[in-house]
Computed example of a mutant assay.
Amino acid sequence: MILENGIIVAVEADGLWVETIQKSACEVCVAEKGCGQKFLSKLAGKTVSIRVLRNKKSSAEYSVGQSVTIGIPEDIIVMASLLVYLLPIFAAIGGAWLFSGSDLQAVGGALGGLLLGGLMVNLHSVKQRDDMRFNPVLIEEPVQPSILNFQQ
């Protein structure tokens, strides 16, 4: 599980919006000058807002400005990346192949397949919006046993 620290920027009934600082690998990457990541992060800012599902606590226990730790499962990141990138590409290739009568038909089929693939990704995202397995979750900080011993 990948852990990130962030600050709550909005509280909703079913989740929280957490702003995290983007950790870029530009300082250690070999392709530092050939990659557009550093340039894009300068243009867009260095913060990212993520919708996070609450565990068992109510919304009243969280407030804007509170610091929290969120967890994102690694396997979900891999599966989501494959879904977002590969499904529209395969749909575009399938559309081009299906309508391969002429060049214009193939281009139209590829664009239609690309749009269909994007729509399928969007529908999957809406369907999995509140599923704890597919979303970042709040990590509850465990109570340290040494503090309990001093209070007795």
Rank of each mutant, 00 (worst) to 15 (best):
56 K>W: 13
135 N>Y: 03
88 P>G: 10
127 K>M: 09
80 A>M: 03
17 W>Y: 04
64 V>A: 03
137 V>K: 08
74 E>P: 05
43 L>R: 14
117 G>A: 13
20 T>G: 00
64 V>W: 03
20 T>D: 03
68 V>H: 05
25 A>Y: 02
26 C>F: 08
127 K>F: 12
6 G>K: 11
16 L>T: 02
38 K>N: 11
136 P>E: 04
33 K>V: 05
17 W>R: 10
94 G>Y: 04
127 K>T: 06
98 L>A: 13
148 L>T: 11
53 L>K: 01
10 A>Q: 08
71 G>V: 06
68 V>Q: 14
8 I>K: 11
49 S>L: 00
41 S>P: 00
99 F>C: 15
13 A>E: 14
82 L>R: 04
92 A>C: 14
53 L>N: 09
66 Q>G: 06
17 W>P: 03
147 I>Q: 13
54 R>I: 11
60 A>N: 05
3 L>H: 12
45 G>N: 05
113 G>Q: 08
67 S>C: 10
47 T>C: 09
11 V>I: 13
51 R>N: 05
4 E>V: 05
83 L>I: 09
86 L>N: 03
40 L>S: 11
147 I>D: 15
75 D>Y: 03
56 K>C: 10
70 I>L: 10
113 G>A: 06
131 D>L: 02
36 G>Y: 01
57 K>S: 15
122 N>P: 01
29 C>S: 14
143 V>T: 10
80 A>K: 05
125 S>G: 13
30 V>N: 12
30 V>P: 13
106 A>D: 07
93 I>L: 15
68 V>C: 11
84 V>G: 03
58 S>P: 08
131 D>K: 13
125 S>T: 09
76 I>A: 14
63 S>R: 10
23 K>C: 04
122 N>R: 11
88 P>R: 10
83 L>F: 08
27 E>C: 02
8 I>M: 10
79 M>Y: 05
89 I>S: 08
105 Q>Y: 12
79 M>N: 08
50 I>W: 00
102 S>H: 07
138 L>E: 00
2 I>D: 09
26 C>M: 07
34 G>K: 14
58 S>Q: 14
70 I>G: 02
38 K>W: 01
41 S>N: 09
45 G>Y: 01
87 L>D: 02
34 G>M: 08
